[in-house]
Simulated scan of single mutants.
Amino acid sequence: MLKRDIKLVAILAILTSLATSFSTVHASSSKDISITNQTTLRENFKHKHHDFKSRLDKLVNNGTITKDQENAALNLIRTDDLQKSKKKSHHSFKDKLNILVANGTITKEQKTSVEKVFISSKKSGNNFKNSLNDSLNTLIKDGTITMKQKTAIQNSFLSYRKERNDNLAKFFKNKFDTLVKNGTITQSQENAMIKSLTTL
């Protein structure tokens, strides 16, 4: 019985020692993170729209806007309004495909296939246009759509993108106008940010 108690005490001592070592290592490694990195981590976590942030980062890097101006802009677009705008825009593309179905350019089945490649292409991020083009070419190769139908779909897509960008430009202008009015940014800085955020 005594040997078993000694073994238990020894195991507890080892576990306590390991836990202390881990917290010491963890504490010392977290001290090594610079204040700048901690700030950057907080900012990246705070801003949900990483694509917008990366686009505005380029303007910060080339000296068009400052980091504070970027953060002021990003804080304005972290709202539900943007999600509403995106949902409206997404329905717009579906509506355009529905028009192609209604006028007999594509069938309902083809529309479903196009919607699937559209969604998968969106996941490719910055390579969206190339991905969509490649996906549509795949649909041509497997006989799902014809070249003429691909052209009609791409024209619908371009029309959708123009509407989407126009809507986004209006959305950003409504938000950023307040920054121009309160002197946080200039009109030319607002124009540069809107262009950066809406360019395909």
Rank of each mutant, 00 (worst) to 15 (best):
K94W: 08
D142K: 14
K46G: 04
S54F: 11
T39G: 04
S156R: 01
A72T: 10
D32G: 04
D142E: 12
L8D: 03
I185T: 15
L8V: 08
N130A: 07
D95R: 13
I99L: 12
R164C: 00
I194R: 11
L41K: 14
K195R: 09
T198D: 05
T66Q: 13
N191L: 03
S113Y: 11
Q110D: 01
T105R: 09
E190Y: 07
T199N: 11
S54K: 15
K123H: 03
S196Q: 15
Q110V: 10
K116G: 04
F118N: 08
K141E: 08
K88N: 06
K111S: 12
K3P: 09
Q154K: 11
H49W: 14
Q83W: 09
I33E: 07
K173M: 02
S34D: 11
I185K: 15
K116W: 08
D57M: 13
N62R: 13
L136S: 02
K67P: 01
V117Q: 09
K53F: 03
V101M: 07
N98F: 10
L97R: 05
T79E: 06
F45G: 10
T66V: 07
L179F: 12
S92G: 10
F176D: 04
T39P: 00
H26I: 02
S89E: 06
A27S: 14
A102Y: 15
S17Y: 05
N137V: 05
F52T: 12
N133T: 12
L168W: 02
N75F: 06
H50N: 12
L15A: 06
S135C: 00
S124F: 08
K46V: 11
K195G: 01
N165T: 05
L59H: 14
S54R: 15
T151W: 00
L100V: 05
K116L: 07
L18F: 03
T151K: 10
G183W: 08
N174Q: 14
V9F: 03
L8Y: 02
D32F: 04
V117G: 03
R55T: 11
N126W: 08
D57A: 11
G63F: 00
N130G: 13
T112W: 05
N61D: 10
R55G: 09
S196E: 15
K96G: 04
A169N: 15
T16S: 10
I140A: 01
K175H: 13
A169D: 14
K31M: 09
T199I: 09
K86M: 04
I99R: 15
F45D: 10
Y160P: 01
K123D: 04
I14F: 04
N98W: 12
N133H: 05
T138Q: 11
L200V: 05
A102K: 15
K129Q: 08
L136E: 02
S131V: 01
L158G: 00
I77N: 04
K148C: 00
I6H: 06
F157H: 02
T198H: 10
I185H: 15
N191Q: 14
V60L: 07
F176G: 02
K141S: 08
L158T: 04
K122F: 05
F52Q: 14
L97N: 06
G143A: 06
I77Q: 03
G125S: 06
V25S: 07
V117T: 13
R78H: 09
E115I: 05
T39W: 03
T199K: 13
S124C: 06
T199Y: 09
G143P: 03
S30Q: 13
L12W: 11
T36F: 03
G143N: 14
L41A: 09
